[in-house]
């Protein structure tokens, strides 16, 4: 098992956060959020990877060989469904924000300053 996927995942998590913090466009903010989420896919898949392993589909195979962990792959699928939902919802909100505030820059969203 390689250390690489986890290093890349950590990098993606942090660079995604940086993207959100430094963004001046809501769409960029939302894409940065999906970058953060991508790191979770890599961690999950990296955890379940077996070198030389095959996809875990045993339906028509009589001789069981080495296989990667199917559980984490299912978790990633769930994770992707969540991403689709949240991203869709956020982009819809961004469209509304553009209509109401006339801007997509988070600096111009000033309805909730304390």
């Amino acid at each position: 098992m390689s250390f690489l996927p986890f290093a890349v995942a950590a990098w993606l998590f942090v660079i995604g956060l940086y993207g959100i913090v430094s963004s001046n466009n809501l769409v960029r903010t939302i894409i940065s959020l999906t970058v953060v989420q991508s790191s979770t896919y890599l961690v999950l898949l990296g955890v379940g990877y077996v070198s030389g392993g095959k996809g875990a589909i045993f339906a028509d195979i009589t001789q069981v060989s080495k296989a990667v962990d199917p559980v984490v792959q299912v978790l990633v699928l769930t994770d992707i469904v969540i991403e689709a939902t949240v991203t869709g919802l956020l982009l819809a909100l961004a469209v509304q924000a553009h209509k109401r505030f006339g801007s997509l820059d988070p600096h111009d969203l000033r309805a909730l300053r304390d």
């Binding site: 995942a9 998590f13 956060l17 959100i20 809501l26 903010t29 939302i30 959020l33 953060v36 989420q37 790191s39 979770t40 961690v43 999950l44 978790l75 994770d79 969540i82 949240v86 919802l89 956020l90 909100l93 961004a94 509304q96 924000a97 109401r100 505030f101 969203l109 309805a111 909730l112």
Partner: peptide, 20 residues
């Protein structure tokens, strides 16, 4: 709109920390 965006992004980041 703004409240929804702030809520969604903050909590999603939290959720990704949970997944990791």
């Amino acid at each position: 709109i703004q409240g929804g965006i702030n809520f969604a992004i903050s909590n999603s980041v939290g959720a990704y920390a949970i997944f990791t």
